[in-house]
Amino acid sequence: MCLAVPGRIEEFASDSGASPLEREGVIDFGGVRRRVSLAFVPEAVPGDYVLVHAGVAIQRLSPDSAAQTWQLLEAEVEGDSAPHEDSTKSGTVDDA
């Protein structure tokens, strides 16, 4: 599978190196903390949620996006006639 888990960036690691590849932060996974590489989420800052796999953040998540996806889905399942595609186009991760 590729077990990846969302966690919240608490802080940048104080001894992170200068190069982008050395960028690291402390991530809180609901009460469990670990140091994780932030090399691939250059735009992420403390407070952001990231998806972590094997000690590396592989994508920044927006908490709003998850909520939006859910709300749309709710509306859609109740009114069964709404076009399904909508549910999959909401709350996207920034493509930038």
């Binding site: 998540l61 996006s65 998850a66 999959t88 186009k89």
Partner: peptide, 20 residues
């Protein structure tokens, strides 16, 4: 192609990861 997992998937992926 449909993206059900939009909260974690951008259609262009993770560019800095792809580059490395």
């Amino acid at each position: 192609v449909v993206n059900q997992y939009a909260r974690a998937v951008a259609s262009s992926g993770n560019r800095s990861a792809l580059e490395l």
